[in-house]
């Protein structure tokens, strides 16, 4: 069984974080105060920022290792990402948002896969709606379907519930839990909400400003 091994330093102007943890299947919550570097860690795993040293590996695939000049492109990492504000393709339908993330098939086949995923996350009826018109909860469901469409090994969830009301948040938690279990993915969840930790965490990685401090099962 493959784990995600993170042992890196990531820097942006004026800030840096040292992150070290191992995440297996299930949900690992990255927990800590705002600005402690949790989202920066996710960005390094997604490949949208390059770590300055250390390594990130998933099973036998090295995502990044600056010392060996290894930096796998985001496109080739097979990770899925859900952002706080969904970051959907606003000019495309929910169906095509998901279909564009299905790999290695033509558009027609991709739409079939996308329709099944939208069904699974409970928004099949909105497949051809205007993406701009969706509610916050609906947007996050589409974003979750999109993140899983590429057969992701690693699912990165960057405060995906924080813009939702209590009812939508609860429903989204259950959906994330069941999808992570069903697909056997390695999920990393960044959150400030203690209820998220209680409800979802299989493991917790604690952050202090600029570094990870502890991992608990």
């Amino acid at each position: 069984m493959s784990n995600l091994i993170v042992d890196v330093r990531v820097e942006v102007p004026g800030f840096g974080v040292d992150a070290a943890f191992v995440a297996g299947r299930g949900i690992t919550v990255l927990s800590g105060p705002s600005g402690s570097g949790k989202s920066l860690t996710l960005a390094a795993i997604a490949g949208t920022i390059r770590p300055v040293r250390g390594h990130i590996r998933c099973g036998d695939v090295t995502f990044a290792e600056p010392a060996r000049s290894v930096h796998l492109r985001s496109q080739d990492r097979r990770v899925g990402m859900v952002y706080q504000h969904a970051a959907l393709f606003e000019h495309k339908s929910p169906l095509d948002n998901v279909a564009l993330a299905v790999r290695n098939v033509g558009l027609a086949a991709a739409r079939v896969v996308a329709a099944e995923l939208l069904e699974r996350v409970g928004v099949a009826a909105l497949a051809t709606a205007k993406t701009r018109s969706l509610s916050g909860g609906e947007r996050q469901r589409v974003a979750l379907a999109r993140a899983l469409a590429g057969e992701a090994r690693v699912l990165l969830l960057d405060e995906p519930f924080s813009s939702l009301d209590a009812a939508a948040r609860q429903a989204m938690r259950q959906l994330v839990r069941s999808l992570v279990d069903e697909r056997g993915v390695i999920a990393l969840l960044v959150t400030h909400d203690a209820q998220d930790v209680d409800a979802l965490a299989d493991r917790v990685v604690g952050y202090e400003p600029g570094q990870t401090v502890a991992a608990t099962e």
Partner: peptide, 27 residues
């Protein structure tokens, strides 16, 4: 164009050319 949306497009596997053609330029 929101860079997070372009990043999302890369993360789901689009090439740079496809990101430009399907996401950035239409937006």
């Amino acid at each position: 164009v929101d860079p997070r949306v372009e990043q999302a497009a890369r993360v789901v596997g689009m090439s740079e050319w496809k990101v430009a053609r399907v996401v950035t330029l239409p937006l």
